[in-house]
Design a protein around this nucleic acid. Structure first.
Lengths: 205, 205
DNA sequence: TAAAAAAGTTGAAGTCATTCATCTTTATAG
DNA sequence: CTATAAAGATGAATGACTTCAACTTTTTTA
């Protein structure tokens, strides 16, 4: 019976992650000590470190779950985007934004972003970066589809435009999570004001 | 004689900052302990904390010096930009990039960026953010000038375009400092590839 | 100039992430 | 079933940032 150990391991990892998602949101990432998570998950401090390399690692795991959902939701939009370049782009972008705070607080987001920047060589950093790239690829895919559909000028470099649009939405999201007072509506309005002119410029006249 | 204390204070602050710039670059931000800086600056650990709120604060002060120089250099370009929308934008952007590693290492940049994101409410974070905004404003100013000059379509929202361009160059710079292997040339090439299409789209045909 | 007040310095103590040698549990072999 | 090996859990110890109560130096007052 070699399944017992595996099952226990999976169970412990799940308990630690569950404790983290709940406690990080409730008390804030910084205020939560590894010891707290260990206690909730009913393991020792050392065991937490057997499953996650650092405290930041645990956070990235939380964020990754959320981003996977965002990517899935985005894919359905890319598969059948609304008519109109502006509408298509903004529908995708807003779907990202609207999902973003479902399980994560602003503090969790900005801490995760900071970690990914600060320690790019760690598994943490690489994983977050990879998720970013998949989001950027999704925006690019949308531009490509709009191009194939004849809505976007054919001679444009879809990859370059996709990157610029993603970089903009990402940076604006960063501003959003950086400011606790900023509402989702403000974020949407600002990004719309920035994205629409670009959309009009790349659209087939 | 009330000047002695002031002079001593200014001197101590200067010594601490000087120690930081040198040591952070030489040994890496993380590897440097406050105790090391205190020793070099010939003060105690506690005194370091009388001048700077946190270790990150010291780093932001280093970065701020550099960004002030970058802004000054950028201003001369905005005052008399080259002919051509692409050329003008890329000259400004490249001047930012080319100055960036003069006094700061990539590790210092990414740590500073991470700090500014993580702790937006601190003097640190606000100061970095303000510098970011001034850079963005400079890009916007350039777009406005190109518009006044008749090189850029007059009906476009210069602020929105400026923001998008800045957000893109900023995000790409982040990718640059995140990857120790990435060269300045690669950064320039990639940003050029992204900025040129936008430049052509906004230019008066 | 001498005493009192103000300002600033100091470094030991506190806190928390992280590590590692030891111990416990599970799996395997005889 | 027992003994051996492997895997994993444990928590005390470590190291670095940060704080703070006591101490020094400088300034002001008389």
């Amino acid at each position: 019976m070699s399944g017992l150990r595996e099952k226990q391991k999976a169970d412990r990892e799940r308990r630690i992650l569950q404790a983290a998602v709940t406690k990080f949101r409730a008390d804030g990432y910084r205020a939560v000590r590894i010891e707290d998570l260990a206690e909730i998950a009913e393991v020792s401090v050392g065991t937490v470190y057997n499953y996650y390399q650092t405290k930041g690692d645990i956070l990235i795991a939380c964020v990754a779950m959320e981003v996977e959902e965002v990517l899935a939701a985005g894919q359905t939009i890319v598969n059948d985007p609304p008519r109109g370049v502006s509408a298509a782009l903004l529908t995708l972008i807003f779907s990202y934004y609207d999902h973003s705070l479902e399980y994560l607080s602003k503090e969790m987001w900005r801490t995760a972003m900071a970690l990914a920047i600060e320690a790019p060589g760690t598994p943490n950093g690489r994983r977050y970066f990879e998720l970013d790239q998949r989001l950027a690829a999704q925006v690019t895919a949308l531009v490509t589809i709009l191009q194939a559909r004849g809505s976007v000028q054919p001679e444009l470099d879809a990859r370059a435009i996709g990157q610029v649009l993603f970089n903009n939405l990402n940076q604006m999201f960063l501003e959003f999570v950086r400011d606790d007072a900023m509402t989702l509506k403000t974020l949407r309005d600002q990004v719309a004001a920035q994205t629409r002119p670009i959309a009009q410029l790349i659209a087939v006249s």
